[in-house]
Amino acid sequence: MKINLATKNFSVVRLLSSVVLISLLAYDASAREWAVECDEDYSQCGGSNLPNSCDNTDGMISEMNSLGGWVQGWYFKGSNAWPQDWQETATVNGGLDSSYMDKVGKADISVWSGHGTGATNEPNGSWDIAMGHRHNDVCNATSPSSIKMGEQTNDGFGNDGDNEYVVMDASCSAIEGELAQVWQNWGPGILMRSHQGLAFHNSPDDADDRLEEFIENIDDGDSNRSAWLDAGENCFLWWCSNSPMVITFGANSSDSSDRHNNETMRSPRADPPSGWDGHYHWSFIDNGSC
């Protein structure tokens, strides 16, 4: 009898262990990670300080739990936010994106909140993340020359990316006339197999709650596209000043359109777009350019 009980207990334990193991595996398979960087102090690399840049990301991560299935990958602020974190490991000397902002298992959404760059004559086919702190004498990470996100299989650039969504909460980060070079694979730009880029066609305001609003909108049922366009626009004094932009990549026109209209961080699509070829759709609210 004792033996039978023990056997029975053992079976129950085995069964429970299996359930726990399967649950853990399922959780791992569905879990997504956020990787966030921001800077407010620009005394080292140059530029105005941005008093709300990291409040903006703090607000975002305070909401991420509400989405379910998202966990922390990285959160680097100030001197811990390095341009190399975004630079392609395989092709840029000192590039560390495969360790940080495009690292497998750490960076399904990668966010930059800070300055960007612009030129006298835009579009000029190039844009930079402009960091506040220098690391190894570098202050900027440039697209298309050094940022490639989500590359896999036979795309090149190490084929070791993982990212799905890229947020560039910074000035001039998605000027409509240079999307081909900066974001699309004509550069090739940022979206190698990342699904979407969420950025700005002009200079957004230094808001402290834009990213929080974005996540709240997704939690409320919006697609990524609607959530970003809604959160990105800001009406201030006599006009609405921001021009939020969403760029979506798909295997073909139909896939790109479907992703653009429906993809949501509540349940991200598991299948990545094609690395080369493929199709892009983009939407923006036109409140002016850089």
């Binding site: 105005s48 030129a119 910074a170 305001d205």
Partner: peptide, 10 residues
């Protein structure tokens, strides 16, 4: 002719 461009500040 390239600049670090801030967000809109006030």
């Amino acid at each position: 002719d390239e600049y670090r461009v801030s967000k809109v500040l006030h």
